[in-house]
């Protein structure tokens, strides 16, 4: 087990914190000043516009920073939704043998739906928007989390402390929520980071395909999508949000790996 802070943890943590700060503060500082100003379209990066401008004259620096906000919302939203629903199903399937079969077959069904098609369908029904995207990305992720939670619960429920809790008269809800769930948390947190990272990437893909968020709400994905046609003349439109996206996703994954490697001091041997 590792103690102290490793490089991936510090790097990952710093990048995540900085991005969250951007996501929170960018709208306040910049005030969404990414207005369409045709007179300054397609400017190369320079002193005036650090990251250049796009075909409609919007400042890529401003759009990249404000894009962080929506990408982070998608990431956290998907991770949260997935974890909430996936954990509930996983806990029930793992603890109650009778529910296991039914829940897991349902999860298998859900897993078979392609995320991109679901996004297109949902966009058609609900209209495109941030929440549609979050639901569309979360749906196929839920079974994966449920599966993980189920396997963790199957291990934990065989631990003698669960039998001991039954023996001292604890009710089933208490055992699930106070004994099993807290001990599954470390695995869940690691899973959350991976879901978050992959959701941000998926959102970019969906936006690139034109079924993500609409271009007037910038996200890293749709800023890049907007620059697709002009890639040869204005590569910066794709380059800068692309770099931010890659670094952020890398940071989250590093952080998740570091969390996993760090292990859990509670579950290791005696410190004495």
């Amino acid at each position: 087990m590792k103690r102290g802070y490793s490089f991936p943890m510090v790097f990952g943590g710093t990048v995540i914190a900085a991005t969250l700060l951007c996501a929170l503060l960018a709208p306040m500082i910049l005030g969404y000043s990414d207005d369409i100003v045709m007179t300054r379209s397609m400017r190369a990066p320079g002193a005036e516009y650090w990251f250049g401008t796009d075909n409609l004259g919007r400042d890529i620096f401003v759009r990249t920073l404000s894009g962080a906000r929506n990408s982070v919302i998608v990431g956290i939203g998907v991770a949260g939704l997935t974890l909430l629903i996936g954990t509930a199903f996983g806990l029930l399937a793992g603890y109650f043998n009778r529910l296991d079969g039914a829940i897991m077959r349902m999860m298998d069904g859900l897993m078979a739906i392609p995320g991109v098609l679901l996004a297109i369908a949902l966009a058609a029904i609900l209209g495109s928007g941030l929440y549609t995207v979050v639901i569309a990305i979360a749906a196929p992720e839920i079974p994966r989390t449920a599966r993980l939670v189920r396997s963790v619960v199957l291990t934990i429920r065989e631990m003698p402390f669960v039998a001991a809790a039954i023996s001292v008269g604890s009710s089933t809800p208490k055992i699930l929520l106070r004994h099993i769930l807290p001990n599954a948390m470390p695995a869940l947190m690691v899973q959350a980071t991976f879901v978050c990272a992959s959701a941000i990437l998926t959102e970019a893909v969906l936006s690139f395909l034109g079924v993500g968020t609409s271009p007037d709400i910038p996200s890293w994905g749709n800023v890049m999508a907007g620059g697709r046609q002009f890639f040869r003349v204005a590569p910066w439109v794709i380059l800068f949000p692309g770099i931010f996206l890659s670094i952020f996703v890398l940071a989250i994954n590093l952080f998740g790996d570091a969390l996993r490697e760090r292990g859990d001091p509670m579950l290791s041997g005696r410190r004495a």
């Binding site: 003698p160 402390f161 039998a163 001991a164 807290p182 859990d264």
Partner: peptide
């Protein structure tokens, strides 16, 4: 009724909730 009969397990390392 469980108050009246209790079990002591083999491995004390895993019979207490670590958290």
């Amino acid at each position: 009724s469980r108050a009246g009969f209790q079990m002591i397990f083999q491995d004390p390392g895993t019979s207490l909730n670590p958290r």
